[in-house]
Design a protein around this nucleic acid. Structure first.
Lengths: 220, 220
DNA sequence: CCATAATATGACCACCTGGTCATATTATGC
DNA sequence: GCATAATATGACCAGGTGGTCATATTATGG
C-alpha cells in the first residue's frame, strides 16, 4: 500500500551513533526552522561538521534526507500513540480521546521540532510527496477513530442521527487544533494554553472533551 | 495599532485597470502555488508580460508585492464577513455561525488562490511579518466571537461553567477546520465535502452547528 | 606491510534568485 | 515641436542553491 521512501545508505546506518544522531538533529532543526525548500544542505553540513560530499554518501539527495526524518517522526508518533491507547484500552471512548490529547502534548514537549516539521508538511504545498507523507501519519488516528465512533453509535454512547464521518471530523478537528494551539500560541484563539500550569492545562483538556461528549451524546 | 504595510507606488495605482489586474492575478497565482519563498518574481514578470524593472517600479520589493496581495485578501474577507453578519444580525448565535460558514464556503469557491495564500501565511514560518498578517485577518472573527459567546453565557444560551475562551476556541476550531477541509480535501478526515452537492453540504453544515450547539448549551 | 576497498573531503558546477541601473521609450505641458 | 518628466526595459550582478567528482584519507584483511 505505502510506497517505499528511499532509505539512507548503509554507510549512514553504520555510522557511529553519536555522529549519526548529530547529523539527524541538525537536519531536523534546519527543516523545522526553514521548511523543505528553504532548508539549506550547506547549513546542515556546516553545522554538523561534515563535508558536503559525505552527506551525499549518506542520502541520495535532499528528498532522501527529508524522508528519513519523516520516517523517524512517524515511528515516534506511532510509538507514543500506541502506548497511550494501550493504557486506556478498556476505558470509555472519551477517556481514550483524553489519553490521545495528553500523548500529543507530551510529544510536542519532547519533540517540538518534529511537530513543526509535521505542521509544515500538512500545510505547505512544496514538500515532495506531501500527500503520501501526510496520510502516513494521519491515517493512523483516523482509521482508529472511525471504527471507535461507529461502535460508540451502536452502543448508544454517540447519537446515531449524524454521519459517523462527521463525528470523526469534529473530534479530529478539536484534538488536532488543540495540539496546534499548544505548539503555536498564535493559533489558540486566546486560550493561552502555553501560559497554563499543569493543573490548568488538565482542566482545559477535560472541558474540551466534556463539550465534545455533550455534543455527541444522544440528545434528549 | 496596525503597522503600515508598504503600499504599491502611484505608478502601479495609475496603471490601466486591465494591466494592473493581470499583474495582480499572476502574482496571486504564483504565491498560492509556491508560497512566499519559492514564488519567483522572474515567473511573475514573464507570465504577466512586463519587464523585471517595471515590477520594481510598482512595488518596493518582493515583500511589497506580497503585502499588497494580502491587503487585497483582507479587504475581500472583511467585505464577505460583514455582508454575511449583516444579514444574520438579529438571529441566534448559532445561526450567525452558520452564516459565517457559508460566507467562507462561498469565499473559497470564488477565491481559492487567496485562501491558499492565507493557509500558507498561517502555517508557514518564513513569511515576512507573518504574525502581524495573521492577526489582521483572524482578529476580526475572534474579536467578534468573543463578546458574542460571553453574551450567550449571560443570556443562558451557552453554559456558563466553561471558560468563554474555550467556547470561542472550539467554535473557531470547528469552523476554521471545516473551511480548511472544504478547500483541502486531504484534511477532511473522510468527510468528502468536495464530493457533496449543495444539499448534502448544507446538511453537513447544519449537523456541525447542531453538535456545537448541543455541546455548548447549558447541560441538564 | 601492502593492496584494495570504503569513506571523507571541499573545490567546483550550472542554475536560479531578488534586486539594480543605464538606457530607451512614451507622455506631458508649454 | 520641443524639453522635461515619467515610465518601461532587460542585461547584468552578487549570492546562494542542490548536486558532482577527482582526490585524499582511513579501514580492512591477507
Amino acid at each position: 500500500m505505502l510506497a517505499i521512501l528511499p532509505p539512507p545508505t548503509n554507510t549512514f546506518c553504520n555510522l557511529p551513533a553519536e555522529k549519526r544522531e548529530r547529523i539527524l538533529a541538525v537536519a531536523v532543526e534546519e527543516f523545522a526552522a526553514n521548511g523543505y525548500q528553504k532548508a539549506s544542505l550547506n547549513n546542515v553540513v556546516k553545522r554538523s561538521g561534515i563535508a558536503k560530499g559525505s552527506l551525499y554518501q549518506y542520502f541520495e539527495n535532499k528528498e532522501g534526507l527529508f524522508f528519513h526524518i519523516f520516517e523517524c517522526f512517524t515511528d515516534l508518533v506511532k510509538a507514543a500513540a500506541n502506548a497511550a491507547l494501550a493504557q486506556a484500552a478498556k476505558d470509555d471512548f472519551f477517556v481514550q480521546l483524553e489519553a490521545i490529547v495528553w500523548a500529543g502534548i507530551r510529544f510536542i514537549d519532547t519533540h517540538p521540532d518534529y511537530f513543526q516539521i509535521y505542521l509544515r508538511v500538512v500545510f505547505e504545498q512544496d514538500v515532495p510527496r506531501r500527500e503520501e507523507l501526510v496520510s502516513r501519519v494521519r491515517l493512523f488516528p483516523l482509521e482508529y477513530m472511525g471504527p471507535l465512533c461507529e461502535a460508540g453509535q451502536r452502543a448508544g454512547a454517540i447519537r446515531d442521527d449524524i454521519d459517523p464521518a462527521m463525528a470523526v471530523f469534529l473530534v479530529d478537528a478539536a484534538l488536532e487544533r488543540f495540539l496546534q494551539a499548544y505548539a503555536k500560541p498564535y493559533l489558540d484563539s486566546g486560550l493561552r494554553l502555553k501560559e497554563k500550569n499543569e493543573r490548568q492545562l488538565r482542566d482545559a483538556v477535560v472541558t474540551m472533551i466534556d463539550v465534545l461528549r455533550a455534543g455527541l451524546v444522544p440528545q434528549g
